[in-house]
Design a protein around this nucleic acid. Structure first.
Lengths: 248, 248
DNA sequence: CGACGATTTGAAATCAGTCAAGAGCAGTGG
DNA sequence: CCACTGCTCTTGACTGATTTCAAATCGTCG
């Protein structure tokens, strides 16, 4: 049996992007009550209309937020990965207004919302970090609205591939040059507000133009900067440059 | 000279939707440092890339958030009215990731962000209320993504008209039966991700079908419930039912 | 009255959607 | 080990909602 980092360590790492934590802050985060659970593909983390009692930290795997319109169309708002506090948006408000679901098999820590709220106001550095996390989420939602509303299929698709590349890179889970993309073309369609058929054609075109190559569930990006130009991608909305340097 | 409510009263009213404030909380909010300023139509409140020092409370008039894509297309993310803290999203983060602009002539109170942050953590009830405000904003962004991504022009337009009716009603600035809509069809188009031409045709159709009637800058809604059905409108995302009753 | 921006309308073009069918791939069970 | 099954991916032909282009009308304000 070897040494193992406390389960909630990713929260510390994450919040240190936005505020300076002292030992007590870190200690308080790591000792938050929590339960670790495995979720199957497509399992719901929260359902629209729920009154969530827990917030959820992704320890491995991917999840996504989405909502379904009256005509049956589904819109995905964001993709989440290890280290994301995937349910602050819903759990802090009383009633969940959207669904969060596992995209792949997921390992997640569930933390009582009340404990998080209490901690947020007992320890302002922690609270500020959590608030920032929700604000950066909101920035991503805005960019997706722009993407879906004002960019054509090619640009839109390239934009999504760039965002994932960058976030996975930032999180230390992949690189800008390529990554495992555990989404079907139907799911990509729901994120891009395109039909799966058109996603297929668009990916094919991006491939033929030499911007990407792909296998069933992974993407290779030939030249990130070039793809970013195709995708009208500006990193600002991710607030990477606003983040603090990683502490030693 | 008659008695006048303190300028920042709308903040108190607003935050009391989400948390119980005591006299000290209210006192602290009302005595936040601030400057009141008039803004002309189209004047910027924040520009993308700015490092905002102030947050902005709308005292009268309308404002909107938007971003411009590389192809010149503009996407509006939300419309704001009296009582909205229109710039928490940008000012709490270091760098603004979108623009906020006056839609009409506006009277606004500018409050130093630092004062707000300090207050938020000195007085948890205030902090929680502010956090909720940003979370409800985020919920509105998500709904707009769904609207733009997954609904057709007719439904989408009806949805926007319903949202504005309901929020104006909630704010005590209008009613569900109709209101002043100070947006040009071009601006509506930027909110709906439609061309102004198509907005025109869509409004015309909604009128001919008897759901709305309109003059140049106002809408009358024949039957809000019916329009809500056309617009696939579910109030949940506004979290109205999660709000506390208005204190006596 | 004149001018400018906003609205309205028509006709043509286009991007993305729909429908449909075949091929590929992965997991299951005999 | 292979056949079966079900899902995902791919491609083609056709359709349609929205855009584009263009011109006329309306309203407001100096």
């Amino acid at each position: 049996m070897h040494m193992r980092l406390p389960v909630l360590t990713p929260i510390v790492t994450r919040l240190q992007r936005w505020s300076v934590l002292d030992d007590q802050d870190r200690e308080a985060i790591l000792s938050l009550p929590h339960v670790v659970r495995d979720l199957a593909v497509h399992e719901h983390i929260v359902r629209e209309g729920d009154r969530p009692q827990y917030s959820c930290l992704l320890l491995s795997g991917y999840a996504y937020r989405h909502k379904v319109a009256g005509n049956g169309g589904r819109q995905i708002f964001s993709i989440h990965m290890r280290g994301d506090l995937v349910d602050l948006q819903n759990s802090l408000l009383k009633t969940a207004d959207h669904n969060v679901q596992a995209l792949t098999k997921v390992e997640a820590a569930f933390i009582p919302v009340e404990a998080i709220k209490t901690l947020a106001f007992e320890r302002p550095s922690v609270g500020l970090g959590l608030w920032y996390e929700t604000l950066v989420d909101a920035s991503i939602f805005r960019e997706w609205t722009l993407n879906v509303g004002r960019r054509n299929a090619r640009t839109r698709t390239a934009h999504l591939l760039c965002e994932l590349a960058l976030r996975l890179d930032w999180e230390g889970l992949g690189s800008r040059d390529g990554y495992e993309l555990p989404m079907t073309q139907e799911e990509l369609g729901d994120a891009l507000a395109l039909t799966p058929v058109h996603v297929n054609r668009t990916l094919k075109a991006l491939g033929e133009e030499g911007f990407i190559s792909r296998t069933r569930r992974s993407v290779t990006i030939a030249d990130w900067e070039k793809l970013a130009r195709v995708g009208d991608f500006d990193t600002r909305y991710l607030h990477i440059k606003d983040a603090l340097p990683v502490p030693a």
